[in-house]
Design a protein around this nucleic acid. Structure first.
Lengths: 186, 186
DNA sequence: CTATTTACGTCAACTATATTGACATAAATC
DNA sequence: GATTTATGTCAATATAGTTGACGTAAATAG
């Protein structure tokens, strides 16, 4: 891949957007919005593709990835909290969670305050896989941030957060606040 | 929804990012990257949720949406081109495409230059549904762009494009170049 | 003009991920 | 003691995808 070519490619509707921004007429047109819709589709397609390949080696799929990821990020997570994050039914969660428990990537301990609850923790093996998966996806972001002009970097985070349903933002914020930095001492 | 609260919420890692950007030390840490991974997950979850509800009324799913969307955006698309965009097998495409054809949302005409090809076009009904779906998703982007500071708007497009695999960018660029503005006269 | 390749369709079996609905159990709470 | 809560589980079903094998008509190469 030619670097010059690559650099030149980083600007679909961005050129027009910049011109308008520069001209202080920063409205976003319907055509721009449609372009964003498609870019979001392609970006997500490639984003999840990375992890899919690694997961295949373990006989796991995306569903396992999501569970392992959030358990690793928030050790001690309850089933109810996980269901709330993933927005799936308990039957659906139970299938993949059972596999992760049996394969020894996640373990469940009875809750101390409420013994009905099952608190989920990653095993050392689970932590390692979660870290490897996170590394793949983080690498994409780190590379992207490197490609982007410094001024655009903070904007990416703002943009994604603004894309979340307003009534969901508080929940996401709470999740981020109590999340562990992945890959801490296993 | 309290406006003040909402405004305050638009800044997960963004605060830190801004401080660093202001301090001219604009490196992106692993922790920031992880946060972006999760924001991307939540943002995409909500993004597709909008359209899912409308599709349900027609007995269609996401797969139908994607096909209809790209046929509407690029009338005259061939099966091969569509397979290349969606990255699924022809068997998988055929199932949903057949349903869209039978339901009268898409029609296929034999290619003029190569009569083996089937050129796909939206019917008036298909155009309407595609437009309604696009309107839902565009609305989210338009609202987001409105929430964001003008300087961050162009960055969103740049960011998403940079998230796409480098070897895919030329293809995406070509697609965007020859795409029709959705919702043109049916 | 025959041979091969290409663009597409189709049958079949299978996997992964989700759903709804009903029922079970143990622990917490009223 | 009755009820609610947190979770597990059985069963049936839907959607979206896969691989593999085979068919057919049209374009193209020899």
């Amino acid at each position: 891949m030619n670097e010059l070519l690559t650099r030149k490619l980083v600007e679909p509707g961005a050129v027009a957007a910049w011109r308008r921004a520069a001209a202080e007429t920063a409205a976003t047109s319907d055509a721009d919005a449609l372009e964003l819709v498609e870019l979001f589709f392609f970006a997500y397609r490639d984003f999840v593709g990375d992890a899919d390949r690694l997961l295949g080696n373990f006989g796991f799929g995306r569903a396992h990835h999501r569970v392992l990821h959030f358990v690793n990020r928030r050790p001690g997570l309850t089933i109810a909290a996980l269901l709330d994050i993933l927005r799936i039914t308990k039957q659906s969660l139970n299938r993949v969670l059972k596999q992760l428990l049996e394969a020894g990537f996640v373990e469940a301990r009875a809750g101390v305050v409420d013994r009905r609850q099952r608190l989920l923790y990653p095993t050392p093996q689970g932590t390692k896989l979660a870290r490897d998966l996170a590394a793949l996806q983080s690498a994409r972001f780190l590379k992207v941030m490197d490609e982007l002009p410094p001024a655009a970097r903070g904007a990416a985070s703002q943009f994604l957060f603004a894309m979340i349903d307003p009534d969901e933002r508080a929940r996401v914020r709470a999740h981020l606040a109590c999340a562990k930095t992945a890959g801490e001492a296993p």
